[in-house]
Simulated scan of single mutants.
Amino acid sequence: MTVGDSRVGKSTVMRLLIDLLCAQKKLIKIYDHDTRYKLAAYSQIVPIENIDFFRGGTDIMLEELKGNCDAIAVDMPGQYLDKVCQYIHKVHLFKLLNDYNWRLTFLQPISHRLDCLDYLEHLLDSFGDSADYVVVKNQYFDKQFSQYHRSEASQKLAVLKGSEVILKELNKYSYETVESLGLPYSAVSNQLAIYSVYRGYTYRWVKSFHSTLINNFTVKNYLGLNKSQQIEEYEYTF
């Protein structure tokens, strides 16, 4: 479940994760809780369903929990943390997940803003070791994240065995071009209409993030990725 403040890269991280799960031949289902439909480009490669948990959407997802999916991913809207927490407690989500032998991972990108740290700390305090946590340090906003590393949220994350990964900054012209064409990131390398240099930047950016996930044992486990395979098995053509 991607969570966090608005405009920190939640949907970007979700799209990158979908690409990797699909490359690993995982059977996945994606739920988009965000009204901006940032995942629309991925509907051509994986089932995506719009959902509103705050209006009874839990029942829809329960059917997937009973099925044979390898992973279920939910892209939540920005902010609304109190509402998200209230919903999870109200429907006893952790009990439901445990009944079907599932585990919830919160995937939270962060920027340079202190609001991100407040959000993360609230999340950790609300759910403790009932969930797993992966923080994505989005280098589009910052390179050092010094305030994060000095924060109580960072210390609490370590205590709860959460993990951190880095999402490197993508050249802004490459990002804008891909966004304007509405393509999955994994399809960019085959689009000759995109300047080769932009395709090259995007290729290396995607590969770097996927490598970061695959080579981190804790993150690999939390995100339902294959445990024994390395990133070299998921090369893209370019």
Score class of each variant (00 low, 15 high):
residue 192 L to W: 10
residue 181 L to W: 05
residue 155 Q to S: 13
residue 165 V to K: 00
residue 161 K to M: 15
residue 209 F to K: 03
residue 193 A to E: 14
residue 172 K to E: 11
residue 203 Y to L: 13
residue 135 V to I: 14
residue 180 S to E: 04
residue 188 V to N: 00
residue 147 Q to N: 14
residue 220 K to L: 01
residue 215 N to C: 14
residue 139 Q to R: 15
residue 184 P to K: 01
residue 140 Y to W: 13
residue 198 Y to S: 06
residue 189 S to M: 08
residue 189 S to N: 09
residue 196 S to L: 09
residue 154 S to E: 11
residue 213 L to E: 00
residue 185 Y to I: 10
residue 168 K to V: 09
residue 192 L to N: 11
residue 148 Y to F: 13
residue 158 A to G: 10
residue 170 L to C: 07
residue 191 Q to H: 12
residue 157 L to C: 11
residue 140 Y to A: 04
residue 188 V to R: 00
residue 151 S to V: 05
residue 179 E to W: 04
residue 174 S to W: 04
residue 180 S to K: 05
residue 146 S to L: 12
residue 210 H to S: 11
residue 162 G to K: 08
residue 136 V to D: 05
residue 196 S to P: 01
residue 168 K to S: 15
residue 198 Y to C: 05
residue 149 H to K: 15
residue 142 D to K: 02
residue 170 L to H: 05
residue 162 G to E: 04
residue 190 N to W: 09
residue 148 Y to W: 12
residue 198 Y to T: 01
residue 224 G to H: 00
residue 159 V to A: 12
residue 155 Q to Y: 11
residue 215 N to G: 10
residue 171 N to E: 14
residue 217 F to W: 06
residue 168 K to F: 13
residue 218 T to I: 12
residue 137 K to R: 13
residue 176 E to N: 11
residue 176 E to A: 12
residue 210 H to W: 14
residue 183 L to N: 00
residue 151 S to H: 05
residue 226 N to D: 13
residue 140 Y to L: 15
residue 213 L to H: 00
residue 166 I to M: 14
residue 178 V to L: 01
residue 173 Y to S: 11
residue 175 Y to K: 08
residue 163 S to I: 06
residue 214 I to C: 10
residue 134 V to C: 11
residue 142 D to Y: 06
residue 169 E to I: 10
residue 157 L to I: 10
residue 159 V to R: 15
residue 216 N to F: 04
residue 173 Y to C: 12
residue 216 N to P: 01
residue 214 I to S: 02
residue 189 S to A: 13
residue 197 V to P: 01
residue 152 E to Q: 14
